[in-house]
């Protein structure tokens, strides 16, 4: 019994120490830096100021925020549209191949996402696999420009982030009670109504979890717009990187990270809130 307790405290303590050292302390430092003034020689200096946050309300920064939300939003939507039917089929699959398919979804994670993005270049570029194939088959006579535009950025993001959508959706759909679907059918609902009234609401938590897992990294994976999009626009990830490394404006870079974190936290809170309301409704 005593041993059990020791183990409990030990594992709790490791988690907490881990969180404190690698999460709370760094975040505290970032918040602290975001409230300081900019200084060339010492990176940050007193006095405390809110100037950095005021600066972030300039139109150019708002534009960068909106553009990042837009690109991330579209990628999330595509991931959802592609991932939902896939996850549904996978979750309902009875075959022994199911394990293999899940493995196939996970395998890309074994390689660094940076390397996979470079391999996307090899596929999409002017002398890449697709263009060479189409040219040699005589289907096209000029290479199709598929890279260095918004489309290739979105292709890259969707490719990198799709598993984050599929996996939570799949676990959610697996738990779906078949009897509810049968009941709906017995009561005369057609396929579309069953999907809309039963399956969709019940898989909503999985969809939202997937969307959050895709949306957050989509905003900050700065190397994908750089590599696949030809670095033609600035997204939040690039903005923060430039503020730290090029202009050496650590306070502004910190403030940008904090604003991003707050926006994302608000989104998650809204989701949690809507879930809680739902539970109350269910009780009624």
């Amino acid at each position: 019994m005593k041993n059990d307790n020791a183990f409990k405290y030990f594992s709790l303590a490791t988690t907490w120490i881990w969180l404190i050292i690698f999460s709370f302390v760094p975040y505290g430092l970032v918040i602290f830096a975001s409230l300081m003034s900019h200084d060339t020689n010492h990176l940050i200096r007193l006095p405390f100021t809110l100037q950095n946050y005021v600066e972030l309300s300039e139109p150019i920064y708002i534009k960068i925020f909106i553009k990042s939300f837009y690109i991330a939003g579209i990628s999330t939507l595509i991931c959802l549209i592609l991932g939902y039917p896939f996850a549904y089929t996978l979750a309902r699959m009875k075959s022994r191949l199911k394990g293999l398919f899940i493995l196939l979804v996970i395998i890309p994670f074994w390689t660094s996402s940076l390397i996979r993005s470079y391999s996307m270049i090899a596929i999409l570029k002017a002398k890449g696999i697709i263009n060479s194939l189409l040219l040699s088959l005589g289907i096209i006579h000029e290479p199709i420009p598929m890279i260095f535009n918004n489309t290739s950025v979105i292709i890259g993001l969707v490719y990198n982030l799709l598993p984050f959508m599929i996996l939570p959706l799949m676990t959610n759909i697996e738990r779906l009670d078949n009897r509810l679907i049968d009941a709906a059918r017995d009561l005369g609902a057609n396929r579309i109504t069953t999907f809309r009234k039963i399956i969709l609401p019940l898989t909503m938590p999985g969809m939202i979890a997937g969307c959050i897992l895709v949306f957050l990294p989509a905003m900050t994976l700065f190397y994908i717009p750089d590599l696949l999009g030809g670095a033609k626009s600035i997204l939040l990830g690039n903005l923060i990187q430039n503020q730290f490394l090029i202009t050496q404006h650590w306070p502004l870079g910190s403030a940008t990270s904090i604003v991003l974190a707050i926006l994302l936290a608000v989104m998650i809170l809204i989701y949690l809130q809507s879930k809680r309301n739902k539970k109350e409704q269910d009780l009624l």
Binding site: H38, T40, I60, K63, I64, K67, I246, T247, H249
Partner: peptide, 20 residues
């Protein structure tokens, strides 16, 4: 050049890339 001047370059660089 000073961080202030570099900051001016960076601002216009951001504006250039955001097309505004």
């Amino acid at each position: 050049m000073s961080d202030v001047a570099l900051g001016v370059y960076e601002k216009y660089w951001e504006k250039l890339k955001m097309g505004s």
